[in-house]
């Protein structure tokens, strides 16, 4: 299970980086969203994934317990990633309103004028 998750995370990393390198800001936004999910998935896989085991067990029970910490941490990082993404999208919206183009090269060119 962890191997698969790690592989998926690796593929997402590749896609995210590919999109980040694109010349259009909208694609860069997509890239950052994918990248943040890749990292979340990586963190989740690193906590070791158990199926059908409870995270909290009663006193004296000899069940195997799942690790709740990684889920909690991933939940936090999802929220943070989400808020960052929201900010980036809002910023892109402002940029779209105020700049003539969202092409990276155009913005740089406009700068040097």
């Amino acid at each position: 299970m962890e191997v698969m998750l790690t592989l998926v995370s690796g593929i997402l990393f590749a896609c995210g980086v590919f999109c980040l390198l694109d010349g259009h800001f909208i694609k860069v936004v997509f890239g950052s969203i994918i990248l943040s999910n890749a990292v979340n998935l990586l963190f989740f896989a690193m906590g070791r994934v158990d199926r059908d085991t409870p995270a909290f067990i009663g006193r004296g029970e000899v069940l195997q317990a799942a690790n709740p910490l990684s889920s909690a941490a991933v939940l936090t990082s999802i929220v943070i990633g989400f808020s960052l993404t929201a900010f980036i999208i809002a910023l892109m919206f402002r940029a779209h309103e105020q700049l003539s183009s969202l092409e990276v090269n155009e913005v740089v060119k406009e700068e040097s004028k």
Partner: peptide, 20 residues
């Protein structure tokens, strides 16, 4: 914003790997 976001992702993945 975009570069700092990327930096945060590096830090978080390093923390994830350390935790793993």
């Amino acid at each position: 914003v975009l570069l700092n976001f990327l930096g945060s992702m590096f830090i978080l993945s390093s923390i994830g790997l350390i935790y793993g």
